[in-house]
Structure formats: C-alpha cells, structure tokens
Amino acid sequence: MSKSAPEPDLSAMRAVFNTRRLASDMTFEELAEASRVSRRTLLNISAGNYHGDLRTWLMLAKAWGVSLDELFEAVWK
C-alpha cells in the first residue's frame, strides 16, 4: 500500500507571511522594494486573498534571508 503524501495547509501561508513581515520590521513598501514583488500582491497575501506563486515566495525568501524550507515549515504541520 502506498502512503498518501501529506496535504499542505495553504491557509497557514497568510500567517507565515504576516509573521515574517512583522519580524523583519519592514513596511509593505520596503518589502515590495526589497523583494521586487508588487505592494498589491503583498497586501493580497497578507489578507489571505492570494497564496502567491513560486516566484513570489522565492523573492520573499531572498528578501528575508531565509530558505523556502524555513518559510514553509508551518505549512506542512
């Protein structure tokens, strides 16, 4: 019997984003400039209206100086 892969908790991505942004002490404008992700996209992720795509999260990880594994750890709990 094959074991099913765990499902990610995509709703946790909003919390991950907001926790990281607040910990970084960056405004939405500062994060948009550092990550080259639009302020509107950042606001939508923060509000839970958009999960973002791989490019978005790669750019955010780079701006925050963390790995994708570190960012998404809570998504797999």
Rank of each mutant, 00 (worst) to 15 (best):
M1G: 13
F17W: 06
P6E: 11
K77M: 00
E30N: 11
T27E: 09
F28R: 08
N18I: 09
R55P: 06
K62R: 12
N18V: 12
R36A: 15
A15Q: 14
L10R: 15
D69P: 00
T19M: 13
N18T: 11
L54M: 11
D53E: 07
T56N: 05
L54Y: 06
E73S: 03
L22K: 15
R40K: 13
D25C: 07
D25P: 00
S4V: 09
R21E: 02
R21N: 07
H51K: 08
K62V: 02
S67Q: 01
D9V: 02
A61I: 02
W57Y: 04
A74C: 01
N18C: 13
L22R: 15
W76M: 02
L60M: 07
P6C: 12
W57M: 04
L10T: 09
T27H: 03
L31P: 10
R21H: 04
Y50K: 07
F72N: 05
M1Q: 12
A5F: 13
M13E: 00
D53S: 08
W57E: 00
A15E: 14
G65E: 05
I45S: 09
T27M: 10
S38A: 08
N49T: 02
A12Q: 14
R20L: 12
A12S: 11
M1S: 11
V37Y: 09
E70V: 04
K62D: 13
P6M: 11
S24W: 07
G48T: 11
E70D: 09
D69H: 01
L68S: 05
R21M: 14
P6G: 11
L58H: 01
A15N: 12
G48Q: 07
V66E: 04
S35R: 07
L60I: 05
W76G: 00
S35D: 05
A32R: 10
V16H: 03
G48F: 09
T56E: 00
R36N: 14
W57I: 03
F72P: 04
V66F: 03
V75M: 11
V75H: 05
T27A: 03
A5P: 12
V37R: 07
R21F: 08
L71R: 02
R36F: 08
V66Q: 01
S67A: 04
A23Y: 03
F28A: 07
A5Y: 12
N18E: 10
M13F: 09
M26C: 12
E33M: 09
W76I: 00
A23T: 10
S11K: 13
S4K: 12
A34G: 06
K3G: 06
S11H: 10
I45W: 06
N44Q: 13
D25T: 09
W64G: 05
N18Q: 11
E7V: 15
M13R: 15
L31D: 11
S11A: 08
G65S: 06
L54I: 08
A23L: 13
T19Q: 14
L68M: 10
F72E: 01
A23P: 01
N44A: 12
F28C: 05
L68P: 03
E70R: 02
W57R: 04
R20I: 02
E7A: 14
E33I: 11
P6S: 10
S67E: 11
L43K: 10
S38W: 09
L58P: 00
M13A: 06
V16N: 07
R20K: 15
R20H: 13
R39A: 10
K77V: 01
N49G: 09
A63E: 03
E70T: 01
A63V: 01
E7I: 15
M26F: 10
D25A: 14
L43C: 04
